[in-house]
C-alpha cells in the first residue's frame, strides 16, 4: 500500500498512457496470458468441430468433386453400415470392460504399492513403465507374443495347460487379446492415481478399525472404497471418455482384424479419411462426439451425486 503511494509518477503516466483503470489492465493482462492457450485450443477443437458438423451434411470426396449437400444422407448411410454398427459395439464393449478391470485391478495394485515393504519404491517405478512406453511398442510386442504360430502365449498355454488356442485369427479371441493388452497398459496408471488418493486417507481410521477387530474385507468395504469413491468415479470417467477415442492399440496390434472384429470407431473414421470419403468421415466424427458426450455427461451426473453425498 505504502509502496504504491510512494511511487505515484510511474503509475500516473501509465494510466494516462493507456487510459485504463487498474481492473481493466488486470483483465487485459489475463487475456494476454490466456491468448496462446485459448487460440490453440479453439484452432484444434471448436473450429474444426463446427466445420465437421457442416461437412457431415455434405457429400464430399476430393477425388470426385463437386461437393454437394445431402442433408442427413451420410447419417442414413451410416446407420445401415454394418462395419459402423460392429465397430461402435466393439468400441463400447472395449471401453467398459477395460475400464472396469483397470479400476478393480488398479485398486488391488494400489494396495500393493501402498503396502509397507522394502521394494515399494521399485514397485512404484515399475508401475510407471507400461503407461510410459509407446502404445505402438506394446501393441507390436503383444502381437508377436499372441502370434498363432510363433508366439509365446499360445505356446505356454499349450505346454502348461494343454490348451490349443488361436488368438489373432479368431474374432472373439482377438477382441479379448486387444482388451487384455489395454488392461495391461493402463491398470498401473490407474493404480498410481488411486494410490495418491489412498495416501490421503488418514491412518487413524485404519487404526480404529483394527482396534474394533475389522476384517480385511470390512476395512476395504467400509473405509477404503467409500473414502476413494470420488477418485474412483473421476478416474473411471476419465478412462471411459479417453479410451473411446483409442486408435493406436487396435491399429498397431490387429489392424482392426480379423475381418473388422477389432475395428474401433476411430479406426473406421481413419479408413474413411484414407479413402477420401470426407463427408462420410465427418458424419462418423459427429456420431463419435455424440457418444462421448452421452457417456461423459452420464459420468458427470454420477460424479456430482457422489460429490454431494460424500
Amino acid at each position: 500500500m505504502n509502496t504504491s503511494l510512494s511511487n505515484p509518477p510511474r503509475s500516473v503516466t501509465r494510466r494516462s498512457l493507456w487510459n485504463l483503470s487498474l481492473a481493466q489492465r488486470r483483465y487485459l493482462l489475463a487475456a494476454g496470458l490466456l491468448l496462446p492457450v485459448v487460440l490453440l485450443r479453439l484452432f484444434t477443437t471448436l473450429y474444426p468441430f463446427l466445420q465437421t458438423t457442416f461437412l457431415s451434411t455434405q457429400k464430399y470426396n476430393p477425388a470426385f468433386p463437386p461437393q454437394s449437400y445431402v442433408g442427413f444422407g451420410n447419417f442414413e448411410r451410416l446407420f445401415n453400415d454394418i462395419v459402423v454398427q460392429q465397430s461402435l459395439l466393439f468400441t463400447i464393449i472395449f471401453v467398459f470392460v477395460s475400464t472396469f478391470f483397470q479400476v478393480v485391478l488398479g485398486l488391488a495394485v494400489a494396495h500393493l504399492l501402498n503396502a509397507p515393504f522394502r521394494l515399494r519404491g521399485l514397485a512404484r517405478s515399475l508401475s510407471l513403465i507400461p503407461w510410459a512406453i509407446p502404445m505402438v511398442v506394446a501393441a507390436i510386442g503383444f502381437r508377436w507374443m499372441f502370434d498363432d504360430q510363433f508366439g509365446m502365449i499360445p505356446d505356454i498355454l499349450r505346454r502348461v495347460f494343454g490348451l490349443e488356442t488361436t488368438w489373432l485369427i479368431n474374432p472373439q479371441n482377438a477382441r479379448l487379446a486387444v482388451v487384455l493388452v489395454n488392461i495391461w497398459k493402463s491398470t498401473p496408471f490407474v493404480a498410481l492415481i488411486l494410490l495418491a488418493g489412498m495416501q490421503g486417507i488418514s491412518q487413524d481410521q485404519y487404526e480404529a478399525a483394527k482396534v474394533d477387530g475389522a476384517t480385511w474385507w470390512q476395512t476395504l468395504r467400509f473405509i477404503t472404497i467409500p473414502m476413494l469413491l470420488p477418485i474412483i468415479v473421476s478416474i473411471s470417467m476419465y478412462m471411459l471418455v479417453w479410451q473411446l477415442a483409442v486408435f493406436d492399440l487396435p491399429y498397431a496390434m490387429t489392424g482392426g482384424g480379423p475381418g473388422f472384429a477389432t475395428t474401433v470407431i476411430a479406426q473406421k473414421i481413419f479408413q474413411e479419411i484414407n479413402s477420401l470419403n470426407y463427408g462420410y468421415a465427418a458424419a462418423l466424427g459427429v456420431v463419435m462426439v455424440a457418444v462421448v458426450a452421452l457417456i461423459g455427461s452420464i459420468g458427470l451426473f454420477i460424479f456430482r451425486r457422489v460429490e454431494v453425498s460424500s
Binding site: P48, F49, A245, I273, G285
Partner: peptide
Amino acid sequence: ALILSVALPQIAVMVPMFQT
C-alpha cells in the same frame, strides 16, 4: 471449458483439421 475440451477425440475432427 478447457478441461471439458479434452473429451473431444482427435480423430473426430481430423478432416477439417487436415484441410486447415
